[in-house]
Nucleic acid binder design. Structure first.
Length: 479
RNA sequence: GGCGCGGUACCCAAGUGGUAAGGGAGAGGUCUGCAAAACCUUUAUACGUGGGUUCGAUUCCCACCCGCGCCUCCA
């Protein structure tokens, strides 16, 4: 197997991925701020990191992956206050929803999913470390990081801070900061706000410090991989670097991976444009979890993903094609024996698939390898050149594929239920379906095609599709 | 203005210094009682525009145009 190349935002280059500790990957993902339901743009990033971790695991690497839940920030405090409930009661529902959504999208659960509010002490001690090094200053009970003390600032995003420093965009006064570039490590409480009483005074953590504190707590001073949306590169990740590296004296992250944004119909997704979707919005429209996952995964993560009504329809068709293929392999009867060429073909597909993913997670290329296999095998089957043993090899290739993409299993109903949706369409029991199929078969035997077609039509209206197979059998599936 | 991503067929989207993967959609055909599924054929004389380098560029260089994002709310 060839090396894995990852495009590193820090260097702007594709680099061979080599874990600092052989066999283990220490990875940190910026998780959601749980002030509301996460939107599909968020999930684009989370599906990306899921594909990444699945791929690394498939290469025999052990994951030590941390994802944070930001469960305290301005929006949370404000929203909770408006509802007159504690921030914990407020965020609980969205934490739950996030976990359900991730499950619905077949995203693996990282080894550590951690809440900011459970790590206040870690943040405080990190801030103390920075204070001891003289990198901070206090202003009205808040503590700020003095960017001027960290010369490497800007190395990730290549942002030129001289512009910001002098820029008119930022009203320095409002922040009570010495320098507009400085950012809050610790925020003094405002009246009525939730706060923690700590050794550095009462207050709550700034946004950036939580990621540094939690990442280093679980993963050590230097992590292999840090992922997040492209918008986080500046200032969030830049600030993480400043805090962490200044505190430890070690490089914070070896590979920075950023996912480009998802846009809707060519425009930024935003509530004001009315094109803002949560996962549940899509499910409500009747889209399957596997369709959404496929769509989010199919465009390489470094590219913007243009989400349109058409593109999700296309994703649904693509998944359908793959699933039909697997069903055919499992259910069709092939002559005994094997065809050496097919085993070779399956091996090539796996090799091409992995080569695609190895190239900075080029999922489009990896998918092409699978679809090539699908076509070649279907052709071989149609020509009668396919044998029983061949099916095992091809199925094994499809399994390899699905260990990463996770869209083949027919689990959409279950996944929908996990987010509280009952599968759409009229209820019909398998027994009833079988009975109708039997009746239709009988009608067909008597060449009563009118009746046979009526039954097929009736089932179709109830969401059941029939396929007559070559050997005279009938297969059915849900729409 | 600075930084970044992109502009490939009807749509999504790979890719390479030597004349374009894959998926979806459409059309025709094979199979089928008819469908469905599957297969075959078909839809880019050149890949935003204009220059340049080169025997040769979509692929390198330059300029320009357009889209999107970030520049302390943001995945």
């Amino acid at each position: 197997m060839g090396e894995i190349l990852l495009e590193n935002t820090l260097t702007n280059r594709k680099e061979a991925f080599v874990p600092l500790r052989p066999g283990e990957v220490r990875m940190y993902t910026c998780g959601p701020t749980v002030y509301d339901y996460a939107h599909i743009g968020n999930y684009r990033t989370f599906v990306f990191q899921d594909i990444l971790r699945r791929f690394l695991r498939s290469r025999g690497l052990r994951m030590n992956h941390v994802m944070n839940l930001t469960d305290v920030d301005d929006r949370i405090i404000q929203n909770a206050a408006e509802k007159g409930i504690s921030i914990f009661d407020y965020t609980a529902q969205y934490i739950q929803a996030f976990k359900e959504d991730m499950k619905a999208l077949s995203c693996e659960t990282p080894e550590h999913v951690v809440r900011a509010t459970d790590h206040i002490a870690d943040m405080v001690s990190l801030i103390q470390k920075l204070e001891a090094k003289g990198l901070t200053y206090r202003s009205d009970g808040s503590i700020y990081y003095r960017i001027a003390k960290f010369p490497a600032y800007g190395k990730l995003s290549k942002v030129d801070l001289s512009g910001i420093k002098a820029g008119a965009r930022v009203e320095t006064d409002r922040y009570e900061k010495d320098d507009a570039r400085d950012f809050a490590l610790w925020k003094a409480p405002k009246p009525g706000e939730h706060f923690w009483e700590t050794e550095i005074g009462p207050g709550r953590p700034g946004w950036h410090i939580e990621c540094s504190a939690m990442a280093m707590k679980y993963l050590g001073d230097t992590l292999d991989i840090h992922t997040g949306g492209i918008d986080l590169a500046f200032p969030h990740h830049e600030n993480e670097i400043a805090q962490s590296e200044a505190a430890t004296g070690h490089p914070f992250v070896k590979y920075w991976l950023h996912a480009e944004h998802l846009i809707i119909d060519g425009e930024k997704m935003s509530k004001s444009l009315g094109n803002f979707y949560t996962l549940r919005d899509l499910f409500k429209k009747g889209h399957k979890p596997s369709t959404v996952r496929y769509l989010l995964a199919s465009v390489p993560y470094r590219r913007q993903l243009n989400f349109t009504a058409d593109s999700i329809q296309q994703a649904a068709s693509s998944v359908e094609r793959l699933r039909n293929f697997v069903v055919r392999l499992k259910e069709a009867k092939f002559p005994a024996g094997s065809n050496a060429a097919m085993e070779q073909r399956a091996r090539k597909a796996i090799a091409d698939f992995e080569a695609g993913l190895s190239d900075d997670l080029n999922t489009a290329l990896a998918l092409a390898a699978i679809f090539d296999l699908v076509r070649d095998v279907n052709t071989a089957i149609d020509r009668g050149e396919f044998r029983q043993q061949d099916a095992l090899h091809v199925l094994s290739a499809m399994k390899k594929f699905d260990q990463i993409f996770a869209v083949l299993e027919d689990n959409d109903d279950t996944n929908l239920q996990s987010v509280g949706f009952t599968p759409s369409g009229p209820e019909i029991s398998p027994e009833e379906i079988e009975a109708l199929i039997a009746e239709r078969q009988k009608a067909r035997e008597h060449r009563n095609f009118k009746r046979a077609d009526e039954i097929r039509q009736e089932l179709a209206e109830r969401g059941i599709l029939l396929e007559d197979t070559r050997d005279g059998g009938v297969r059915w599936k849900k729409k």
